[in-house]
């Protein structure tokens, strides 16, 4: 198999007395979706933080395109092509939708092409009618789409999405599904979410997490994975 885009080797992280991650190893390849499922407190957001550089592991290493990035900052990883959407969307509240997208794109795109690329992305995400609106006026679904748009405009190789369906209505989830499906042909996505059906329908592989460990990893059809999902959710509930 080709060498992985991202790999984690034996990563552990604790907060005070809480062991949020223990000895997690994972590999992610150039395209497709790796789903991450697990109950509250399983360590999913901590894992996302370790990958994007917002958190430093206590032990273990992180590699991106064969290069160790364990000690690189968020900004340095962003420059290598790692993007992140947060469990609670983070956008710039005092700017308009257009300005938010512009800030995200302008590090990568020449000034001449900027406007076209922003409008194209907005079109794709269904934000084109909202461009002049202030970000603080958006609904929670629109905020998610804006944050995703910003992440995409930074032209990442790897997109880590932390619970993108949180706070979305059924229709919006379908809409997001379609967007992610077409994206996953071009880049690698790590998709963290509680909605098992949503993750299952999009992911090539799924990692099941519980209490800071990856307890199951495989294709979504694998019996073993399904059992693990059932087990952790019943125990976690």
């Amino acid at each position: 198999m080709a060498s992985p885009l991202l790999s984690l080797q034996g990563v552990s992280k604790s907060f005070g007395g809480v062991q949020a991650l223990s000895d997690v190893s994972l590999r992610v390849y150039d395209s497709g979706v790796l789903g991450i499922i697990g109950p509250n407190g399983a360590g999913k957001s901590t894992l996302a933080g370790i990958i994007v550089g917002a958190l430093k592991p206590d032990r273990g290493k992180v590699f991106f395109r064969g290069r160790e990035i364990t000690n690189l900052t968020v900004r340095e990883r962003a420059a290598l092509g790692v993007a992140h959407t947060h469990q609670i969307p983070r956008v710039f509240q005092s700017l308009t939708v257009y300005e938010n997208l512009e800030l995200a794109a302008s590090r990568r795109v020449s000034r001449r092409d900027l406007d076209g690329i922003i409008r194209e992305a907005a079109e794709k995400l269904g934000l084109n009618g909202l461009l002049e609106l202030g970000a603080s006026q958006l609904s929670s679904g629109q905020l998610r789409l804006l944050e995703i748009g910003m992440a995409l405009l930074s032209q990442p190789l790897l997109l880590v999405m932390d619970e993108p369906t949180q706070g979305l209505a059924g229709l919006e989830v379908n809409y997001l599904s379609n967007i992610l499906r077409s994206l996953s042909e071009r880049l690698a996505i790590i998709l963290i979410d509680h909605r098992v059906d949503f993750v299952a329908s999009l992911s090539n592989r799924v990692a099941v997490m519980s209490r800071g460990r990856v307890v199951g990893l495989g294709r979504i059809g694998d019996v073993e994975v399904v059992e693990k999902i059932e087990a952790v959710y019943m125990r976690g509930a």
Partner: peptide, 17 residues
């Protein structure tokens, strides 16, 4: 606009490079 973005969310701006 960058200044305002910095005030709104410094970490996010950093994450955009």
């Amino acid at each position: 606009r960058l200044f305002h973005a910095l005030r709104d969310d410094e970490g996010k701006l950093e994450a955009l490079g």
